[in-house]
Amino acid sequence: MEKIFKPVSGYLALIIATLGLVGGIVMLINSSGHSGFVLPGIILIIASIFVFKGIMVVNPNHSRVCVFFGKYIGSVKENGLLWVNPLYSTLKISLRSENLESSKLKVNDKLGNPIEIAAVIVWQVQDTYKAAFEVEDYDHYVKVQSEAAIRHLATTYPYDQFEDENATITLRDGGEKVNDMLEKELNDRLAPAGIIIREARISHLAYAAEIAGAMLQRQQATAIVAARYKIVEGAVGMVELALEQLSKKEIVKLDEEKKAAMVSNLMVVLCGEKGAQPILNTGTLYQ
């Protein structure tokens, strides 16, 4: 459990140590005429160095974990020039937010498709005691657990809905939901190290190189089929409207065979990819 330790101001200790050091040096200089100044001078210098050792500077968004012969004393988060027991050993821990950009990981999604995924993570030390004593190296711990969380997320959901049409969340279309789930899992994994996740975002997501070409062709084919469906649907409506208007206004009377020929011609014109080339018929439909 983290304990906040508030040391005394270091300015007074700095003044005392400086005066003691100067006084000790002066005594040693004058010891040639007064031999009794030698021992007090040496003691004063040693005491001044001892006081100097307890002076420390804590910068903004930094902390010091203080330990006294293996016993945790507390964490110093106050900024400025401070003084603690010179026998304390201290460990510097930064409280600033840090960025972690994971490498591109090659994993299989929920359906077994090989994909590449990477994320950008913003993390910060929240509990200095856990960061210092609960894990061996909290910085390395963050990197390893972040990679594990990204891999687990990738295997939990499909890349898209091509093979799993009933999927409510996919990696490609999940957006903020996927990022929120990644952030939650990272917080759960890194809590033992006293780390909090400020933000987590998927920065790279793609099919692996060996299937990327095939998946691209599949997406293109799906898009072509969808476009053709819309074209045919519109063409049928236009043909239906044309026949209805011709019959309503009695512009021309068409029997079933002529209607079939007209429908065929209109469908070819409306669904064709190239512009229609008209052909003049100098005879009749039956010649």
Results as ranks from 00 to 15, higher is better:
232 V>M: 03
64 R>V: 03
251 I>S: 12
199 E>V: 07
13 A>R: 06
53 K>F: 06
72 Y>G: 01
73 I>N: 01
225 V>H: 08
249 K>S: 15
250 E>K: 15
81 L>Q: 07
48 S>A: 15
188 D>V: 12
156 T>Y: 10
103 S>C: 10
15 I>T: 09
279 I>A: 12
68 F>C: 13
93 I>Y: 03
219 Q>N: 14
229 Y>W: 11
159 Y>H: 09
15 I>C: 07
128 T>F: 01
190 L>D: 02
251 I>T: 15
115 I>F: 01
49 I>C: 10
162 F>K: 07
153 L>N: 01
196 I>N: 14
258 K>S: 11
262 M>G: 11
101 E>R: 15
190 L>H: 03
16 I>S: 07
56 M>N: 11
153 L>M: 06
264 S>T: 07
19 L>P: 03
189 R>K: 14
123 W>I: 02
229 Y>N: 09
233 E>V: 07
240 E>W: 08
218 R>P: 05
174 G>P: 01
49 I>H: 06
117 I>D: 00
151 R>G: 09
155 T>M: 13
101 E>G: 12
59 N>Q: 14
75 S>I: 02
19 L>E: 06
103 S>T: 13
121 I>Y: 00
82 L>Y: 04
275 G>K: 13
98 E>Y: 09
160 D>K: 06
105 L>W: 02
16 I>F: 09
91 L>C: 08
258 K>I: 10
117 I>Y: 00
286 Y>S: 10
170 T>C: 01
88 Y>S: 03
139 D>H: 11
13 A>T: 05
184 K>E: 09
38 V>K: 08
79 N>L: 11
70 G>D: 04
207 Y>V: 00
67 V>Q: 07
265 N>W: 09
43 I>W: 04
156 T>I: 08
285 L>G: 12
183 E>R: 14
193 A>K: 02
258 K>A: 13
119 A>V: 00
95 L>N: 10
98 E>W: 05
103 S>P: 08
95 L>D: 05
106 K>A: 10
147 E>Q: 13
138 Y>E: 07
209 A>C: 06
251 I>W: 15
213 G>P: 04
102 S>Q: 04
49 I>E: 06
229 Y>P: 07
71 K>I: 10
156 T>E: 07
